[in-house]
Computed example of a mutant assay.
Amino acid sequence: MNFALILLILLLVSGAIWAVDAFVLRKRRPADAKDPWWVEYGASFFPVILIVFMLRSFLVEPFKIPSGSMIPTLQVGDFILVNKYTYGIRLPVINRKIIDINSPQRGDVMVFRYPEDPSLDYIKRVIGVPGDVIAYQNKKLTINGEPVPTTRVDDYLHPERLYYSRQFTEKIDAAQYQALNDADAPPYIPGPAQFPNRELCSYNAAGVVCTVPPGHYFVMGDNRDNSRDSRFWGFVPEQNIVGKAFFIWLNFSDFSRIGSFR
């Protein structure tokens, strides 16, 4: 469901009702006449819809985390806020950038439209920016030939499934975060898709090596063996970017998570 398009249609309809009533119909009604119900509702909803539309399109947008691909950073059921302007001002619905501000940086947690189905929003961590050579070999990550600094910490217990994953602290540029992998999961990438710029990736028994093309980004989930990401379906085009995730504002199962993500 394209909520932005639905919101735009509601805005245009309610705005048209408000404008026609304000500039035409109101002048024709007797001073003591009651507004028709369709005018009353349409005109009263217009400013509310306008505020919601502007906030959601240009400032912040809420999302709910549907899967465990970003555990432990983000949990299933987290409601997050996404900064819509940090990567530039975009026109709603068509998602075309009109003002350039910043570009995604390595380590950012980014929301984007899934390249294979742009009606779906995905969230992953930016690992590679244009021109980077990303290698994920035997579950070790390198960027431009330099190993990403990694420290083993206590294993992570998945509370709902009651099993442990190996947990590491990784540091990419200014971002430091926890990442997981499973000891019994193979390092190779099973069944990668035939995506655009597929020739820039090479697959082997140890994993994958990719060169990020201009205008694209390489993203991965923090829960490495339970995430379908750029290793499987390729690069994220710049025009698919939605914004940068920055805040957990609600989790009905665990209120202590509110505000725990930056």
Rank of each mutant, 00 (worst) to 15 (best):
F63M: 13
I94S: 12
E146T: 13
S227I: 01
S119D: 13
S67G: 05
Y136W: 03
F3S: 11
P190E: 02
P147M: 01
Y164N: 08
P115T: 01
Y122V: 02
A179D: 05
H158K: 08
K124P: 06
G128F: 00
Y163V: 12
P237I: 01
R29A: 15
S256C: 05
S14A: 08
Y177W: 01
F58L: 09
F46P: 09
S260V: 10
P130R: 02
T73D: 11
D222V: 01
L74K: 04
F261R: 02
K244W: 02
G42M: 01
M70S: 07
F53L: 03
L74Y: 03
D222N: 08
S202A: 14
S253T: 05
V109Y: 04
M220N: 01
D182V: 14
G128W: 00
K27A: 12
S57E: 06
L55Q: 03
D121V: 09
D100T: 14
V219Y: 00
L180Y: 03
F45T: 00
Y41R: 11
Y122A: 04
N240V: 06
F246R: 04
D100Q: 15
F79Y: 14
L12Q: 08
R29M: 15
S44G: 14
P62M: 13
F63L: 12
N197H: 14
L11N: 07
L250P: 03
M1C: 11
A16N: 04
I65E: 08
P214L: 00
R257C: 02
W37C: 08
S260G: 13
F112C: 10
S67W: 08
L10H: 02
S202T: 15
N102F: 02
I9K: 04
V148G: 06
S69W: 06
Q178T: 14
V82N: 03
N226A: 07
V52F: 15
L7N: 12
S253I: 10
A33G: 01
N95D: 11
N197L: 05
G221I: 01
R26C: 11
F255R: 13
I9P: 08
I258V: 13
M54H: 11
V24F: 06
E160C: 03
V126N: 04
I94P: 10
P30C: 13
K97R: 15
R26A: 11
A22G: 12
L5M: 15
P159V: 14
F235H: 10
I134V: 15
F63I: 09
P214G: 02
R257P: 09
R262M: 12
P62A: 14
P62R: 10
I94L: 14
Q239E: 14
I65R: 00
G15C: 02
D78N: 03
M54Q: 07
D132R: 02
R198L: 03
R29E: 15
P187Q: 01
D254Q: 07
E199A: 11
F247S: 10
